Simulated assay, not measured.
Amino acid sequence: MLYLLFYKLLGVNLFKYITFRSIYAAITAMFLGFYLYPYFERFLKDFQFKQTIKEYMPEGHKGKSEIPTMGGILIIVSLLLAVLLWSNLENPFVWVTVFVVLTFGLIGFVDDFVKAKLKRPEGISERAKFLSQLAAATAVALFLYKSGFSTVLYFPVFKELHVDLGLLFIPWAVFIIVGTSNAVNLTDGLDGLAIGPVITTSFVFLIFSYVVGNYRLATYLQLPYVPGAGELTVVCAAVIGASLAFLWFNAYPAEVFMGDVGALSLGALLGTVALLTKQEFVLAIAGGIFVVETMSVIIQRFVFKLTKRLYGEGKRVFKMAPLHHHFEKKGWKEPKITVRFWIVSIILALVSLSLLKIR
């Protein structure tokens, strides 16, 4: 909005620069989060949107049943207001990200509402949630495919290695968006645990978005040039600002949880940005925490079902999945798990950024 007003209409060159607008998108989202939280907390408490604790959860979670959930609404509001204020609204990539945040946020909202207000701890059925995610992601994939977006899949490190997926781009895009959405949701199990890697991964894609959207930098670093992708730098900056504000209240001991409304939307947004910047494999590295958490659940279920079929009794690889609950069962304190996962996430972010030069 400000880009169109000050640069396009009034000719103020300062608003042309993505770096300037990104900085203030982050600041805007952060301060909106701080300002709105007291009002939002009152809203959550008035409507009794409290965290649902399942019976099989570790003992330390029993006391969290009175903590408000659905704090992801605050992240979405802060994020979208900053994006709409500071980004170039003529860029279609901006509207793709807005669509993803709103649709996946709506899916998460319905799930959280069913858990909190209808007293159904499992929320909506896994089938309904998954099909809804598939529908939203497919809409994005089809839009990109029909609009002529590149269907080439690029691999990091190997500059000459790339494959044109053609029509297979559609299921690939759906897999990335839905997979990342659910991966972030699985990670969101401890105070501040998921939002930390969201921040570090967003920072990685802030850099990559700027680079691949700049022809000279992309060419120099031998990365695919994606016209218009530079505007995603503003989106990633807004994610960082909104997430930092949320972390202020979500850090141990948490005053609010993001719920599915936040986790599903943030995960889907990261997956979408990875697709738009042609850096899907970088996402797997930068978001390695999300990958490991998801794989721990898949491995746990697969081994349990296999051993139950073979031996009549299911065996478990981990004490509990996702992985963060395994460490809880081993006696690690919640803040220690969270901070150590953050440290790993920072290391993975640095490794991801190193791929800018490794060719």
Rank of each mutant, 00 (worst) to 15 (best):
M1C: 08
F6L: 15
L9E: 12
I23Y: 00
A25I: 07
I27T: 07
F31Y: 01
Y35A: 15
F47C: 01
T52P: 03
E55N: 03
Y56P: 01
Y56S: 14
P58A: 01
E59G: 04
H61T: 00
K62Q: 13
E66R: 11
G71K: 08
G72D: 12
S78W: 00
V98E: 07
V101W: 06
G105L: 11
L106Y: 12
L106K: 05
G108M: 05
A116F: 08
L118C: 02
P121Q: 06
I124T: 11
I124V: 10
S132W: 08
A136M: 08
A139S: 14
K146E: 11
G148Y: 05
F149M: 06
S150Q: 06
P156I: 02
F158G: 01
L165Y: 12
L165I: 04
L167E: 11
F169W: 06
F175R: 01
L186C: 06
L186S: 07
G192K: 03
I195D: 13
G196M: 14
P197I: 00
V198L: 15
S202L: 03
S202T: 02
F208L: 15
Y210V: 02
N214D: 15
T219E: 15
P227H: 02
A229H: 09
E231V: 11
A237R: 09
G241V: 04
L244C: 13
A245C: 10
N250M: 05
P253F: 00
V256H: 00
D260L: 07
G262E: 10
L266F: 01
L269K: 13
V273M: 11
F281Q: 00
A284H: 02
A286G: 09
I299W: 01
F304C: 02
L310K: 14
K315Y: 14
V317L: 11
P322E: 07
H325Q: 02
K330T: 05
K333V: 04
P335I: 09
K336D: 07
T338M: 14
L355E: 12
K357E: 07
I358H: 09
